[in-house]
Design a protein around this nucleic acid. Structure first.
Lengths: 336, 336
DNA sequence: TCGATTCGCTGAATCGTTTCGGCAACCACC
DNA sequence: GGTGGTTGCCGAAACGATTCAGCGAATCGA
């Protein structure tokens, strides 16, 4: 029943009539090793004939490099994006002949600890700690880590590792600029809850863009929603009831933009005819809304790529890598 | 700079004053090994003191079991669900002290081959081959696989492995039943392209439910869309223009239901007041639509779980496991 | 007291690689 | 024919665990 087991280096060596060491050097193309041309050919032929492939576990044991990276995320499924992040990391890893080991922790610190341990037990060559919404992560337990480690979409409690995060401040800035360039002057900003880093950063950028043009943003046009459609809905109603209502609404995420759409529709207002709407995140949903929602895209795939690249570089020192959130211009913004 | 390297079994043994073999038996709680109580305690204390954790690579090399499963998917990011599937598999794996190695192939058969090889090189204990939309996968190259293997959301060209797929036929059946029970008799079915297994299965079930009640379904109420909103949009327009229009529309996926919503809105029709709509897939989108879309949920998470369980069981013989697609009842269906 | 058991532990082999010191053989040169 | 440098390959020692035959010592039964 069981297929003939995998050929080992010993099989190759004996078929080629050489020592294991010789076969090994040929197979790995060792630089300084000198081996006669026809010996090399014999080994290669044997490899071919047997369909030999090195046992990565054994190799890893010997070389102390497993070509494995660990990806520890707090939720893999929760956000659709997690998949993109993983794909980004995986693509880079694959190109560098590495594989990804994954685990999700469901935000449980104990599970996270255990997951990291499990990966270290497997001798991973590096570790990506990813959070699905930018937040602080306690890095103290990681301090003595012997392998490279990067933080993805989150911040360490201490500056120990590289951090790859979206440039939310610039995203807010670009969002406001985009709307201002389109001629809007009264722009509402339905932000998320102020306890989130992203919310504050986006607001800073948003205000900076106004300031840059010598504008001061009317505080009455700023609100803090709950990141969900009903938050967007309620604030939009309130904002549109203002004596001098906004001509554009910037929502700190697409979900709230969905709520804004609803409120606007109920008020008999047209998007973008009467009011322009700009979201943030670029969820898949955005392109299916009517009108298709313009939004600032979170660079999930790119963050995954970067994280993995940093690992390949083996870098460990702290640095904050801010990745841009490019605008996806669709049909929800009107130029005045 | 480099932290003191991980303690090995030898360190534990020497600290406890025993042989490596003894330490090993204690640590692994070997059944038939009898070791004195205080020796055991000494070893355990040493383990504790050193923070010893076994090197999984070395252990795997010796035991021929790595506690690693490979997950080879054609797209991890493309569908948001892939993440759920992986999570399902990962959760089961984790509970059984296994980790998941992942790779995505982007539908490229060569990459798939390479990915599978890469996993086998890593001595995985099992392999999950997953496709993001149910389709046929060439299993011939997997024939001589020496490890358990399951097909997830896809069918093998030959019956070699367990296959875990959604029960689309029953899903179609349940969908129709649900609508018929609600009193609808003229139910339109906007199906997807007929080249997809899922489309045909859903249609079979849909018709069977009618037949079961002695009803024959009016073919004019059946259409084949393109799985995208515009397909749903156009067919809905056509269907509602019929002399005897449907009172309910069953769309073979949520995206087309979005299109149906649009068309209905433009026609000034209310959902579910005038027309009920039922989708399929339960994308995240569904719950954000107005009214929230009722839909048949694809059991992504469960498929992931099942696949992993099968692997743990080590089963290899062919069997087709059909997982139910439970209805998610929200606000888009009206009872007549 | 003398085998026979049982107990508690050890040493060595093994898993499949890589790496490195060293050994023949060959050539070149004085 | 020494001396010295290359060349081409080999053997053995790791890497960090598990497993198993077996060995003294203690215990037991008669």
């Amino acid at each position: 029943m069981s297929s003939p087991s995998r050929p080992t280096l010993a099989d190759v060596a004996s078929l080629a009539g050489v020592a294991r060491s010789t076969a090994s050097m040929v197979i790995n193309g060792v630089e300084h090793a000198r081996v006669a041309e026809d010996t090399r050919a014999r080994v290669l032929a044997a490899v071919d004939q047997l369909g030999y492939r090195p046992n990565a576990a054994a190799r890893g044991l010997r070389t102390q490099r497993t070509h494995l990276f660990g990806f520890v995320g707090d939720e893999i499924a929760a956000s659709a994006y997690a998949g993109e992040t993983i794909t980004g990391a995986q693509d880079v890893a694959w190109a560098a002949d590495h594989l990804l080991l994954i685990a999700n922790t469901g935000r449980d610190p104990d599970v996270q600890r255990a997951a990291i341990d499990a990966m270290l037990d497997r001798q991973v060559d590096g570790l990506i700690i990813a959070a699905m919404s930018a937040r602080e992560v306690d890095v103290e337990p990681l301090r003595l880590l012997s392998v490279p480690c990067v933080l993805l979409n989150c911040f360490g409690t201490q500056p120990l590792f590289p951090e790859i995060v979206p440039d939310d401040e610039r995203g807010g800035f670009d969002a406001a600029t985009l709307l201002l360039d389109a001629g809007h002057t009264r722009i509402a900003f339905i932000n998320g809850s102020a306890d989130k880093h992203a919310a504050n950063a986006r607001e800073r950028g948003f205000l900076a863009a106004h300031a840059q043009r010598g504008l001061t943003h009317d505080p009455v046009l700023r609100a803090h929603g709950n990141w969900w459609p009903d938050g967007g809905y309620e604030h939009t109603q309130r904002l549109l009831a203002l004596p001098d209502p906004p001509t554009a609404i910037f929502c700190a995420n697409d979900r709230m933009a969905v709520g804004a759409y609803e409120a606007l529709k109920e008020l008999g207002l047209d998007v973008p005819g009467d009011v322009s709407v700009l979201g943030y995140d670029d969820m898949e949903l955005a392109q299916h809304l009517r009108p298709a929602l313009s939004t600032m895209a979170l660079p999930h795939y790119e963050m995954g790529q970067w994280a993995c690249r940093r690992l390949l570089l083996g870098a460990r020192e702290h640095v904050r890598e801010l990745l841009p959130c490019p605008p996806k211009l669709r049909d929800s913004i009107r130029t005045l």
